Computed example of a mutant assay.
Amino acid sequence: MPIQVANRRRSAVSLTRAFPGAHVIDVTSKAGEPWVRLSPFYPHGGVPVPRTPGVTSQSVEGIWQALKVFETADVDPGKLDVTTMTGLNRTVRTNGPVRGHRDGLYGDRLLTYPTARRRIYLPAYRWVLENKTTGLVEQLRHLAGEHDVVLLDYTTIGDINDCRTPLSHAALICLYVQDQWPEEDH
């Protein structure tokens, strides 16, 4: 199944030249329906917060931001309830350097960035793919069986261990559709 990831900032001309005949699908928070539902910012609701039994979030990004711990700010449970796809990010400019991600909303352990990806982000995003967007995942499988597919994202890094830039959820979609999901840390 030929599915690739490209940067959303590329021009349509550049994408057409690089991927002639491909279905180009934006899966960012700026995408239209139905593909915007694959964005980690999309407020599906009911997304279980890893290592926090009984607590859910509106979105995957809400979980990621809520569990982030800074030099001057601990977890922010309010991020779990955000339904607007905006106002989710918590920044070093406001809160100082990131110390890690809390291992669950009430956990006492801070996780390193790569461990947090495996223990928080991957399980939360996989849950959305398996419980909230199964129809879209099947559409992608079908499209990829007929034509090349290019998913647009702001980042294109799909290597879970490469922490130089944020992880591309589009790359994770590719891995999931192709049954190559990265190993999670339980």
Rank of each mutant, 00 (worst) to 15 (best):
2 P>S: 06
10 R>Q: 10
13 V>W: 13
14 S>P: 06
17 R>N: 13
17 R>Y: 08
22 A>N: 07
25 I>F: 04
27 V>Y: 04
28 T>F: 06
29 S>Q: 13
34 P>D: 09
35 W>R: 00
41 F>M: 03
42 Y>D: 05
42 Y>S: 06
45 G>T: 05
49 V>C: 00
51 R>F: 03
52 T>K: 08
54 G>Y: 04
54 G>E: 00
59 S>F: 01
59 S>Q: 02
63 I>K: 00
64 W>R: 00
65 Q>M: 02
69 V>H: 01
70 F>Q: 03
72 T>Q: 15
75 V>D: 03
75 V>R: 00
79 K>G: 02
79 K>M: 01
80 L>E: 01
83 T>Y: 12
90 R>M: 01
90 R>E: 05
91 T>M: 06
93 R>C: 14
94 T>K: 15
94 T>D: 15
95 N>S: 11
97 P>I: 07
101 H>C: 15
105 L>F: 06
109 R>E: 10
109 R>G: 12
111 L>W: 01
114 P>C: 10
116 A>K: 07
118 R>D: 06
118 R>N: 12
119 R>G: 04
121 Y>C: 15
123 P>F: 00
123 P>H: 02
124 A>W: 00
124 A>V: 08
126 R>M: 01
127 W>D: 06
127 W>A: 11
128 V>A: 02
130 E>K: 11
132 K>R: 09
135 G>W: 12
137 V>Q: 06
141 R>V: 01
142 H>R: 14
143 L>H: 13
144 A>E: 10
149 V>T: 13
152 L>H: 01
153 D>H: 09
156 T>H: 08
158 G>C: 10
159 D>T: 04
162 D>W: 07
162 D>K: 12
163 C>L: 14
165 T>S: 11
166 P>N: 11
167 L>E: 08
168 S>E: 09
170 A>E: 03
172 L>K: 11
174 C>V: 13
174 C>E: 12
175 L>G: 14
176 Y>P: 09
178 Q>I: 09
179 D>T: 04
180 Q>E: 10
182 P>N: 04
186 H>C: 15
186 H>A: 14
